[in-house]
Design a protein around this nucleic acid. Structure first.
Length: 317
DNA sequence: CACGCCTTTCCTGTTT
DNA sequence: AAAACAGGAAAGGCGT
């Protein structure tokens, strides 16, 4: 059981494919009373219904393995879009952390990273994608470091979440103990997507093959246009610093152009960035069709056909 | 070290 | 007049 949870069995098989992994998982499900549930699309994974605090390290390892497998599929998937294509941005505010959805956890983390001028690209928080608020609030500092892949970022996230939890005065709901003893443990607040046909637990579509000898450091740094998309998805910056002019068209406008440029400069550890230079970089995107000019409108740009990942279900206004 | 991709920096000129 | 927009030229940084 342990090896299954950690994904070791997957690596013990000779054919490294999703098929193998999921077949193992089906066996596992059969044997363990459907303890694992299929959770949805790319970027999500199996979630044990009866996850206990002691199992969190194993769960994280499991998540890490799953994300490793999913890694090459998630690049152009908007980080905030959940299984139903619904954006969860900002909805976590004022809400008990344990009720946060995975997307709300992500938005919280992104917001905190942005404040500290860390990269907010999806890669940065990749391994948090499978963490619901219920799990998130239980993570230790070590968990956070491990998931973020960084001591500093892990500490930052842990500090931020501790602060938030501390501010949740008086609304400590049931204790964990109550949860664990509840019949049919299923209280992890995650939008479980039940597959009503096909093999239970089987991921839809063609299984993705995995090449095990690759991806050492595919930590591609955040491109300028990706940075802009992330600003538009972040309630800390949209619509205060940047906003959609017309989401359907893909046009957006810099509300505080100099601040956005400085934010970009901070990201690149360059205190000399300003909108003049920032905009020059944007104009270079015209050639590659990542951006298009919007004549007559100042500070307004339009995403071109080569810009991926900006179209989300519920844009901020 | 080379090379290519993305900017960053600087600049001249034009438009709003 | 001030702020944006347009691009050319060249250098910087970084990953491969």
């Amino acid at each position: 059981m342990y090896s299954l949870m950690t994904g070791n069995n997957y690596y013990e098989t000779d054919t490294n494919s999703f098929d193998n992994y999921f077949y193992y998982n089906e066996d596992f499900q059969a044997n363990m009373n459907n303890d694992w549930s299929y959770m949805g699309d790319v970027g999500t994974t199996y979630m044990p219904k009866s996850l206990k605090p002691d199992n969190i390290p194993e769960w994280i390892t499991h998540v890490e393995h799953m994300n490793l497998l999913n890694e090459n599929l998630t690049n152009d998937k908007p980080s905030y879009v959940d299984n139903n294509g619904t954006s969860a941005i900002r909805t976590w505010q004022g809400k008990a952390m344990e009720d946060w959805t995975n997307d709300e956890v992500l938005d919280f983390i992104m917001s905190e990273l942005l404040l500290e001028c860390y990269e907010t690209s999806p890669e940065r928080s990749q391994r948090f994608r499978c963490i619901s608020g219920y799990i998130f609030q239980q993570l230790t500092e070590e968990h956070c470091k491990e998931l973020s892949g960084s001591k500093d970022v892990g500490e930052l996230i842990y500090r931020a979440k501790s602060l938030y939890l501390a501010q949740q005065v008086g609304n400590r709901l049931e204790t964990c103990a109550n949860h664990w003893t509840t019949e049919n443990n299923c209280m992890i607040p995650y939008p479980v997507k039940i597959e009503n046909e096909g093999i239970p637990g089987r991921r839809p579509g063609r299984p993705r093959s995995v090449n095990t000898v690759r991806r050492k450091s595919q930590k591609r740094s955040e491109k300028l246009w990706e940075f802009i998309i992330n600003l538009l998805k972040n309630s800390k910056t949209c619509p205060d610093l940047i906003k959609w002019e017309d989401f359907e068209e893909g046009t957006f406008k810099f509300v505080q152009s100099e601040k956005v440029a400085q934010l970009w400069g901070a990201r690149k550890k360059n205190g000399n960035m300003n909108y003049e230079k920032f905009s020059r970089a944007l104009r270079y995107y015209y050639k590659s069709k990542i951006l298009q000019a919007v004549p007559g409108k100042r500070l307004v740009y339009k995403f071109g056909p080569q810009a991926k990942g900006w179209r989300i279900a519920s844009p901020l206004y």
